[in-house]
């Protein structure tokens, strides 16, 4: 009898592919949310594997805030093209008109561009299932998130009405107007993601690798001055620092870490020896321990 021991990455890969195929078989109009980060890159790579030789049979959707790093915008179109997928970019017109930005508007920035923008984009295209790259290890409230997470017609998440998920059986049935967020990489950890990127040679945004970049230090975060929209405070002079990013979001909200890791194995080495968790570089979670859960109930991914 042929025996082959599957590694943890092979088992995770098989599970993610199974989930994606299940969605395509049962959904009417699925979409993959693509945030250009490393988790999205892995999710996209898995989708290509799941449906090969066909291209993934759904479009990519980027809910844009206009405030992402320039390097991210550069990779966005390229990745979609390589996968042979349509790329949809949505910007909340109201946020655009009102010039909502992270410097002047604080939490409103995330709320209008991301939370509202996502709802508007899903409604506009009538998407009934949206793949997201969230992982259960990211944050405590996500540890209980289902793989198939149901949203009411107004996109709210109710922890009490989520369905039990047994074996590999996902119940994707829903009433008209309801939608599902599906997280195919729920069971991957940050280390799994990095190892897989390394093993599979997946292209990621260069910002994950250390390079000299113009930065300022503000409120305990090292921020990159990625373009001239960055309003410098009095006395602030951008300094070149060798930095990299552990997560990517809107550049004014994403803290860098000082590093000299220019290759993936070094990045992984630093990650394993480091003593702060991944989300710490994100300003959004700092308010209080349960802030992510609140955001989720409101419809943020």
């Amino acid at each position: 009898m042929t025996q082959k021991t599957l590694t943890h990455l092979q088992r995770l890969e098989a599970e993610s592919i199974h989930i994606m195929r299940e969605v395509v078989a049962e959904a009417e109009n699925p979409v993959m949310l693509y945030s250009i980060g490393k988790d999205s890159a892995v999710m996209l790579h898995l989708a290509r594997k799941a449906f090969y030789p066909a291209p993934p049979p759904f479009p990519l959707l980027h809910v844009d805030t206009t405030w992402k790093f320039r390097d991210m915008y550069a990779l966005r179109g390229k990745a979609a093209e390589q996968a042979g997928m349509e790329l949809l970019v949505y910007q909340n017109p109201e946020a655009l008109a009102r010039g909502i930005n992270p410097f002047d508007h604080g939490p409103l920035h995330t709320d209008m561009w991301k939370t509202e923008g996502l709802k508007q984009a899903l409604d506009l295209h009538n998407f009934d299932v949206a793949f997201g790259g969230a992982r259960r290890d990211e944050e405590k409230s996500r540890a209980k998130e289902r793989v198939f997470s149901f949203r009411s017609a107004n996109h709210r998440w109710d922890p009490k009405t989520q369905r039990p998920e047994l074996w590999r059986l996902y119940n994707a049935r829903k009433a008209k107007g309801e939608s599902v967020r599906v997280f195919p990489i729920s069971n991957w950890t940050e280390l799994d993601i990095w190892q897989y990127i390394h093993l599979e040679g997946i292209e990621i945004v260069p910002l994950y690798f250390a390079a000299p970049r113009p930065t300022v230090e503000r409120d305990g975060l090292i921020l990159m001055v990625d373009d001239d929209r960055f309003p410098l405070r009095e006395g602030e002079v951008p300094q070149m620092r060798s930095v990299r990013f552990r997560t990517l979001g809107c550049y004014p909200l994403t803290g860098a870490v000082e590093s000299t890791a220019t290759e993936l194995p070094q990045v992984i080495q630093e990650m394993l020896l480091t003593t702060t968790s991944e989300r710490q570089g994100r300003a959004i979670d700092r308010d209080q321990a349960a802030s992510m859960e609140k955001k989720k109930q409101e419809g943020y991914f």
């Binding site: 021991t5 599957l6 590694t7 943890h8 990455l9 088992r11 995770l12 280390l191 190892q195 390394h198 093993l199 194995p265 992984i268």
Partner: peptide, 9 residues
């Protein structure tokens, strides 16, 4: 990395 890519689950 080589060692850890061959972990089981």
């Amino acid at each position: 990395l080589v060692a850890h890519q061959h972990k089981t689950m």
